[in-house]
């Protein structure tokens, strides 16, 4: 392709937007509406996942050791466990630290009567998990270590959080697929209508001797541009809606905002921008590419 033909094709793609104002607006509006819903849903799901993740981070497994286990042995177990995929962080709590913690939490001034540490064999490892669903595997492993006396864990919390996580994944996956299918259906209809109106132009191009590529290229450029506009508009709207919603919840529902730790808009947009642009451009590209193909056999 000659360089001037390349720029001509790009230029025609831009000009087509103005030549078919109503079709352009309808297509942009359809893509925007679909991606707005997608963006909104994505922001809600991401925050929900964040809340669950925060809760997960608090879940720990505590490993206690047999009487007479030395600190070196415990530290060896610690470094062994740290190599496992289920483990995010391990905190070693010595017998003294365990007793201090117990005194502080439950006894206060009544602890003065104790001359020796009653929790002398309570040195333990508090293990925080990278994924709560992996808790059973870690517990089984820890229980198999010879110096380990017992492993304390919260089965219910882990199961519930892991269940909630799975549910969110399934529901969000399902809704996103449905949204995408609806978007593709609506957008391909709009693109089909817009291109069918210009069937004559495609026919003329073919009669004159245009290659399929040359016929298709301006429509594809147009489709991509519509996709870009169609994804930028909802990104801007969702940005304002999201920021305002966080501000509103923070000011009106103070108690709720301490429970729900909203993600900053930048964190949500780190992924939402590329996803929305890819979806908009992808839909615009494939919509125009496949629709023009139907009219190429002249």
């Amino acid at each position: 392709m000659r360089i001037n033909s390349f720029f001509y094709t790009i230029g025609q793609g831009f000009k087509n937007l103005g030549r078919n104002k109503w079709y352009t607006l309808a297509s942009i509006a359809t893509i925007s509406a679909c991606l707005f819903l997608f963006g909104l849903f994505y922001a809600i799901i991401t925050n929900f996942q964040h809340v669950v993740k925060t809760a997960e981070e608090g879940v720990s497994v505590t490993v206690f050791f047999n009487e007479g286990t030395t600190e070196d042995q415990i530290l060896a177990v610690k470094s062994d466990l740290e190599n496992r995929a289920e483990v995010r962080e391990i905190v070693y709590v010595s017998a003294e630290e365990a007793w201090e913690g117990f005194k502080e939490q439950y006894l206060g001034d009544y602890s003065d009567g104790f001359t020796e540490n009653p929790l002398a064999d309570s040195a333990n490892l508090q293990i925080y998990l990278s994924d709560v669903s992996l808790q059973p595997a870690l517990v089984t492993y820890a229980e198999s270590i010879s110096v380990v006396r017992s492993v304390n864990r919260s089965e219910v919390t882990a199961t519930t959080l892991s269940g909630v996580n799975k549910l969110i994944a399934y529901v969000s996956g399902g809704i996103i697929v449905i949204l995408l299918l609806v978007s593709i259906f609506l957008i391909s209809n709009t693109v089909t209508m817009g291109i069918s109106v210009r069937k004559d132009e495609i026919n003329i191009m073919k009669y004159i001797g245009a290659t399929d590529f040359f016929v298709r290229a301006p429509f594809v450029v147009e489709g991509i541009l519509i996709g870009i506009f169609g994804s930028i508009i909802p990104l801007v709207i969702v940005y304002f809606v999201y920021t305002k919603a966080i501000e509103y919840v923070a000011s009106k529902f103070t108690m709720l905002s301490s429970l729900l730790n909203f993600l900053p808009v930048e964190v949500v947009y780190n992924k939402l921008i590329p996803i929305s642009l890819a979806l908009g451009i992808g839909i615009g590209f494939f919509g125009s590419f496949t629709t023009v193909r139907k009219h190429l056999h002249v």
Binding site: M1, R2, N4, S5, Y8, R19, D200, E201, N203, I204, M205, I208, G209, A210, F214
Partner: peptide, 20 residues
């Protein structure tokens, strides 16, 4: 079968653009 959204010059030039 002219392109009604373009002027006379553009309609004729269109045929030349197509053959690059």
């Amino acid at each position: 079968r002219l392109l009604k959204d373009r002027n006379v010059y553009e309609n004729v030039a269109f045929a030349q653009r197509i053959v690059q």
